[in-house]
Simulated scan of single mutants.
Amino acid sequence: MIKIGLVTVLYKSDDVLEDFFKSLSLQSFKNYHLYLIDNSPSAETDNLIEILSTKYPLTSYTHVKNTSNDGVAKGNNQGIKLALNDNSDFVLLLNNDIDFNQTFLLDEMINYAISNNENLLIPKIYYHGTRKIWLAGGKIHKYKGYASHVGYNKDDSEVYNSIKYFDYAPTCFMLISRKVFEAVGLMDENYFVYYDDTDYLARAVEKGFKVCYLPKLEVFHKVSFSTGGGESLFSIYYLNRNRVYFVRKNYPFLVRQIALSHTILTRLIKYLIYKKDEKKTLLKAIKDGFSIKITQ
């Protein structure tokens, strides 16, 4: 029987865990193991997980308590390695600030993957509590150095209801076959957070894989719950630092120069409208992005 390892990274996630546990407990597919990689462990979280696992029974889970917050990429790698060592056929990387009501969701993803020899699969993802799309596929814009979501902020419509293939999607909810990890390896831990999935998908596409979008399947995302939003100092730093690093790492000379030029020019516009702390954070981000030693 096919086995899935579910990997989610916790960071001060107590407020969203009940919906997460409830969604998993309702799934008709039961041959999974959940790896809770906790970057902010506490006695309160321990107690909450015990309560929720009783209220919303799961097949099985492991709660890994890290002594420091070393980021999403490293946390995902911890869970991926545990899942592969436990002989999982697929790994589902998923946020915990999500919920999903379709009891057949995991069954459908697995069945489609097996029947059609697919290795990377995503559902349609809405903003939580709405029918407004957060994700219906994705695309990497290599000459600009960033990735975008198809359907972002759009009302759902028939346009987004066809099975399609893409070269990018975030790992908010992505089913990945063992074959992909064997060919591509693990995530680049230099990213900490943001662009770790962009980098991974760029590497997977280079190996011939593609992302299959299944619009029948639905997930609801409580966006930016753990990171403070797109324009927090935290996000300004990591989005910009990692964008520069991503371009330096993944593209040949000419594409790299074009993408870096576009990035710097658009950051200059941001700099002119930012407040003092934001300006300082942006400058440090760009400097650090050029300083990171390229790995993998």
Rank of each mutant, 00 (worst) to 15 (best):
Y200I: 00
E206K: 11
P252C: 11
Y191K: 08
V247I: 09
L93Y: 00
D97T: 07
K284H: 14
V255Y: 10
Y146K: 13
S115W: 00
M1P: 00
E182N: 09
H141G: 00
A73R: 02
S60R: 08
K249T: 06
S42G: 03
P57I: 04
L106W: 12
G138F: 01
A204S: 06
K30A: 05
R267M: 14
A136T: 02
V9H: 06
Y195Q: 13
Y194L: 09
F166A: 02
R256T: 03
T103A: 15
K3E: 08
N95R: 12
K81Y: 02
Q257W: 13
V255A: 11
L10Q: 04
S28G: 05
V244A: 04
V205H: 00
Q27C: 06
L272Q: 15
N95H: 15
L36D: 03
R243S: 10
V64T: 04
L106H: 12
D97L: 08
R178Y: 12
G129R: 05
D46V: 04
K139S: 09
N39F: 03
L36R: 04
N66S: 05
R203V: 04
D86H: 08
S235R: 14
Y200C: 03
K65G: 02
K210L: 03
A73W: 02
T67E: 09
V150M: 11
A136R: 03
S115F: 00
S115R: 03
E108F: 10
K142Q: 13
E278C: 05
P215G: 06
N95A: 15
H141D: 13
L283T: 10
I292F: 13
C212L: 08
V72K: 14
I122E: 07
R131C: 10
K279G: 08
L36K: 01
Y112L: 06
Y61Q: 11
P41E: 01
Y168D: 02
I80V: 09
Y146I: 10
N69V: 05
R267E: 15
L24Q: 10
Y61F: 15
Y11G: 08
M174D: 05
N111G: 07
D38F: 01
I264N: 15
K55H: 08
S60I: 03
N111A: 09
A285Q: 13
G5S: 06
D155Y: 08
L17Q: 01
V193Q: 11
G228A: 13
S42I: 00
P123M: 09
S162L: 15
S224M: 12
K139N: 11
Y238Q: 09
D188A: 03
R131H: 13
G75N: 03
N116M: 03
